[in-house]
Simulated assay, not measured.
Amino acid sequence: MLDALTLDQIRTFVAVADSGSFRAGAGSLSRAQSGVSVAVANLEAQLGLLLFDRSGHRPVLTPQGEALLADARDILLRVDAMRARARGFGDGVELRLSIVVDTLFPLSAVGAALAGMRAHYPSVAIRLEVQPLGGPLQALTDQRCTLAIMVGEDFRDPRISFEALSPVSQVAVVAAGHPLAAGRGLGVPDLADHVQIVLSDPTALSEGRDFGVLSPQSCRVTSQDAKHALILSGVGWGRLPLWLVEDDLSSGRLVRLPTTALGRDGQVQAQSYLARRLDQPFGPAARSFAAALTESCRA
């Protein structure tokens, strides 16, 4: 009788699997342990198989339980997304719109979209943060923002939807007076002999990974402004978004690194995305901002 399955049973199954025990699962659901055990047992009876091996001190997922856990998560994700969408239809205008923007994305585009949104919803308060690397995704998963603008495909989560905006170019640059500026046909060994200015991830999402770090002599900073300032001052080299350094390149304060080890003409391109949680309501102000930003990126 698969039609007798309930969302409560499926949610309880996932809670026990995530927490590692019936007791901890009951605590996460604020329910009695006996009720959680009964819900999982009823689910097993309806499915006709065991989801957990209970022979040890703690319940362990059976191979069938492991396989069905992904389906259970997908069901809950879709149901939560449907509920959020339904709430959004009935909700009024948000009191506040919180946005976290990747450091690589031009804030001028964000500002223009916010101005457009406020023309229609002037009472909505705005909270804007700029974060590198995993910061925007972490803010979404922690529910600290309504929307995030992310660049690249390094960070993903099944609870988050992504809508492509526009490509963002990064260029490898160095100050005009830096020794690397006078080089020709530089290779990785040449770059490794000099300090590379690198952004640090404020989250643990990139733990154990380095993105584009070629030099063992790295100087890690916490903001794009700091990275830009150190490169301009001649401390080292690094990649910066093209929109940020166009004036510096035109004036000669910065020069592109003459190397093909960092992309053609020292330039690489990544796609930017507007991201939001599938299980959170999307109010009219957020929809207005998203539409304005998407339209400006297509222009």
Score class of each variant (00 low, 15 high):
residue 34 S to L: 00
residue 257 L to T: 07
residue 246 E to V: 15
residue 158 P to S: 04
residue 8 D to F: 13
residue 285 A to W: 15
residue 177 G to M: 12
residue 13 F to T: 03
residue 230 L to E: 04
residue 98 S to P: 14
residue 58 R to N: 04
residue 107 L to C: 02
residue 122 P to G: 03
residue 183 G to T: 01
residue 40 V to N: 15
residue 284 P to V: 09
residue 251 S to L: 06
residue 220 R to T: 00
residue 298 R to H: 15
residue 135 G to I: 07
residue 28 S to V: 14
residue 31 R to N: 01
residue 40 V to T: 12
residue 147 L to Y: 11
residue 148 A to M: 11
residue 89 F to E: 08
residue 61 L to C: 01
residue 216 P to H: 10
residue 198 V to E: 05
residue 33 Q to G: 13
residue 19 S to T: 04
residue 154 D to F: 14
residue 66 E to G: 08
residue 76 L to S: 01
residue 243 W to S: 07
residue 164 A to G: 12
residue 245 V to L: 07
residue 154 D to L: 14
residue 228 H to P: 03
residue 156 R to E: 08
residue 89 F to H: 11
residue 236 G to K: 06
residue 64 Q to G: 03
residue 81 A to T: 04
residue 253 R to K: 08
residue 226 A to Q: 12
residue 25 G to Q: 06
residue 119 A to Y: 04
residue 130 V to N: 02
residue 131 Q to V: 02
residue 6 T to R: 04
residue 177 G to P: 00
residue 40 V to E: 08
residue 114 L to H: 09
residue 271 Q to S: 09
residue 176 A to R: 13
residue 262 L to W: 04
residue 52 F to D: 02
residue 238 G to Q: 01
residue 6 T to K: 06
residue 185 G to T: 07
residue 158 P to F: 10
residue 38 V to C: 04
residue 32 A to L: 12
residue 185 G to A: 12
residue 80 D to P: 00
residue 95 L to G: 14
residue 288 S to E: 15
residue 62 T to N: 09
residue 238 G to K: 01
residue 13 F to D: 02
residue 231 I to R: 00
residue 11 R to N: 14
residue 276 R to A: 05
residue 137 L to Y: 15
residue 198 V to R: 06
residue 60 V to S: 06
residue 79 V to C: 06
residue 255 V to H: 09
residue 64 Q to A: 00
residue 28 S to R: 15
residue 90 G to S: 10
residue 143 Q to T: 12
residue 296 S to Y: 15
residue 177 G to R: 13
residue 291 A to Y: 14
residue 267 Q to C: 11
residue 130 V to T: 11
residue 249 L to V: 11
residue 139 A to D: 11
residue 86 A to P: 05
